[in-house]
Design a protein around this nucleic acid. Structure first.
Lengths: 153, 153
DNA sequence: GAGAGATCATTTGTACACAAATGATCCAGG
DNA sequence: CCTGGATCATTTGTGTACAAATGATCTCTC
């Protein structure tokens, strides 16, 4: 109440908010840049970042329910649904009934899916490298550590 | 050719690729977290991050063509089109013919748009603060500096 | 001053991203 | 057992994100 009536300390600063300096904007730009590097670097595999994430995770897990795969890759159920549909349409993963839970379906990579992951792994590693290229090794460690905390806090 | 036939140096490492450690994944998660904080923190203004970015930029610029506003906020022409349409539908910005260029249209914030930015600015600053909350002040400076380079390299 | 090439805005199509609602099924506590 | 709350997958609706194509207009250069 009282504070509102006091004279403003900063007299009439038009806008102390520079969009280009906001974390959110910088995170978005960095993510954009990574997506562009990914698109360029993934080559003939022609996978999107999310398709790659889902596929490589499923190969590592062996099999998983759709929602679980979504949790492992940070996609909500509505989003993982479309990603799985497209991977299935390309014959990279299969779906079968879960004998232990009639709500769930079991996803598993096909031979083609596993082969594609193996063939694409070097490109994926190169993409992460290229994304971090602006930083030297010491900076990369620091950045990744801080980014990790920003992501999971 | 020859290399392919040599024994593998790492004998049969199944997968040296942990999705959770990849920059791209961490950038996406951090961006997701920021979006959630934004949604929570923007309050009654009910703007999306991109709508806020476009509006606050237009208030700062005074007026701009649609494509230019897109460049200032890192949105391609197809994307800024929808953002502008929604801001116009809410009466926060207006569009008029550009006398100097008959292809372009001039966008400008309305009084309501300017008022909304002024009213929402504290929340926007708090959102950036909250996003950076996991880091102490020294870490924030380092992180923002490195992130800047990752975004614009 | 007449193209050639760039720029402005739009449209179409595909792919996330997430809120909200739905119906089927699971499971734990009474 | 059996029922209330959780979980599985889907659907609908809105909002980015971007490639590609289009038509109108601008501008530069010869």
């Amino acid at each position: 109440m009282v504070l509102k009536d006091l004279p403003r300390p900063r007299q009439h600063q038009p806008l102390t908010y520079a969009l280009e300096d906001q974390v959110g904007h910088l995170l978005r730009r960095a993510h954009q840049r990574h997506a562009a590097i990914f698109l360029e670097g993934i080559g003939p595999a022609a996978l999107t970042p999310m398709q790659w994430a889902a596929l490589v995770t499923l190969v590592r897990e062996g099999r998983a329910s759709q929602n679980r795969l979504g949790r492992l890759t940070a996609m909500d159920p509505a989003t993982i649904q479309g990603v799985v549909r497209r991977l299935r349409a390309r014959g990279l993963i299969t779906r079968s009934a879960d004998p232990a839970d009639r709500r769930a379906s079991l996803l598993a990579p096909t031979g083609a899916g596993i082969a594609l992951v193996e063939a694409t792994l070097p490109a994926a590693i190169a993409i992460s490298e290229a994304t971090l290229a602006p930083l030297d090794p010491a900076e990369r460690r620091i950045f990744l550590q801080l980014l990790q905390r920003m992501a999971f806090a």
